[in-house]
Nucleic acid binder design. Structure first.
Lengths: 251, 251
DNA sequence: CGGGGGGTTGATCTCCTTCAATCAACGTGG
DNA sequence: CCACGTTGATTGAAGGAGATCAACCCCCCG
């Protein structure tokens, strides 16, 4: 499962101005001058699906933005119990300025491209360009809200509600990528295995599988193959999730 | 349960330089000039134990630091299920710059004093004095870590481990207040009712009560009265919490 | 003395975990 | 081309941890 971490993609270089996450990532508020500073020190790294990017406790001398692909943040107890604590999507930020070592395992679930900065250099930039710190604060507050939403799910929702919530969240962010509202019929691929869903939802993979089957039996979702999901009625799904209306956003 | 919100304590005024949370709150990094700006626009409000400070969805035109006392952040589902998502202790920050309405219910569990700022004024200060935004980022990152630690507890720990974790966390912050390490014998009062603990831990108050009894029977904790706890062996408690060593911090 | 809030304890039930068998899809090597 | 192992998913049967429902206690206060 563990593969050798790929070396930096030194030959790949995208202009910041052409970057797909230019207006959502930590650089979103920067003007052209500020962007130039970042441009000069950034470098790209790519990771393959399944690859561990860093292990909790490891030294981590860079911070990064997810350009494309999906990664997970997770914590593990000594006896092997695992809990995912974050899902990293394009434009999300990885790493913490001012911290030496990684606090969580970071794992790529799909092939990924990340835009990286040496930590020290990034910290200097944060001091000199307030727009970076401001945007990072905004993003961190959003993540905190998402984490708290997730605490409600983990602490109080039934297995069925947990699954409906997760599917609704994935549907929402998928719609957001396509710049549309999720309503009526929605269709997409699940980016997570049953095991990853279980780690996220705080349950076993068997229960995940059972609840997926149950939601399908009851017509809440339709499934083609293992991963492709169609939602005939989005409001129905939200109802099953136990959210009044618009709760349950993510990362 | 709901009481009338007290009016601002206009006559109370503490100099920032004498403030007990001066070096831990959102103002921690400010120099004297910057502190002067805050001093001019701050105002105090006090709340009684049990009082709701704001309801989720209510308009909230101020942000604040907890000066003394304890409050909880919680979310409620339509059918009444509740989950606490944060514990606010002295120096913690309440409210989100740039947001109009409260995202959570905020409830005082003890009598409290809060140092408040009109939201608009605070936002202006954040733009002009980077030290405030920098400190807020640092605090928000800490809260995010605490929330994620809590996700592991909610998703993967047993009832007994949950209780041991909660008690360990309270013991730690209590020791932190007294500026000492928790080790060997530790003693303090639980600041939460059984019901509040249940809301925090994602379980029922009956299960909380049973697990407290079980931990007492097994000699992990000793109890005098309803609320006073003594921990004969802190390492033993940590072991029961399922944390390897130093996990489980809070807010 | 009555009542209410907070806490404890017991009996029962149920939802989810655990353990296990089975299946489909896929790749690999003989 | 087929046997074989592997990986991810589904389904079943059994058991248990915690929820639910309910009784009761203690203490304070009007």
């Amino acid at each position: 499962m563990q593969k050798i971490i790929s070396s930096p993609d030194r030959y790949l270089h995208v202009q910041c101005s052409d970057c797909p996450i230019r207006h959502r990532a930590v650089c979103a508020r920067c003007d052209d001058d500020e962007l130039q500073l970042l441009e000069e020190v950034k470098f790209y790294r790519s990771f393959e699906a399944g690859q561990t990017i860093v292990w909790s406790g490891d030294r981590m001398d860079f911070v990064a933005s997810v350009v494309s692909g999906i990664a997970t943040l997770s914590q593990t107890m000594e006896d092997g119990r695992r809990q995912m604590v974050g899902l990293l999507l394009p434009s999300d930020f990885v790493g913490r300025p001012g911290r030496e070592t990684a606090a969580y395992d970071v794992t790529a679930t799909t092939d990924m491209l990340m835009c990286c900065f040496r930590k020290k250099q990034f910290e200097d930039i944060m001091l000199s360009t307030p727009h970076v710190g401001q945007r990072l604060l905004e993003m961190t507050l959003d993540e905190l809200d998402a984490a708290r939403e997730w605490m409600l799910l983990l602490g109080r929702k039934s297995a069925r509600e947990k699954l409906a919530s997760l599917i609704a969240i994935i549907a929402r962010r998928d719609a957001a990528l396509k710049l549309m509202q999720p309503e009526g019929q929605v269709s997409f691929d699940l980016p997570l295995s049953r095991e990853a869903m279980a780690d996220y939802l705080g349950m076993t993979l068997e229960t995940v599988s059972r609840q997926v089957s149950a939601l399908r039996r009851d017509g809440v979702i339709e499934i083609k193959g293992k991963r492709h999901v169609t939602i005939p009625d989005f409001d129905r799904l939200i109802e099953e999730a136990g959210d009044d209306q618009d709760g349950g956003f993510l990362t």
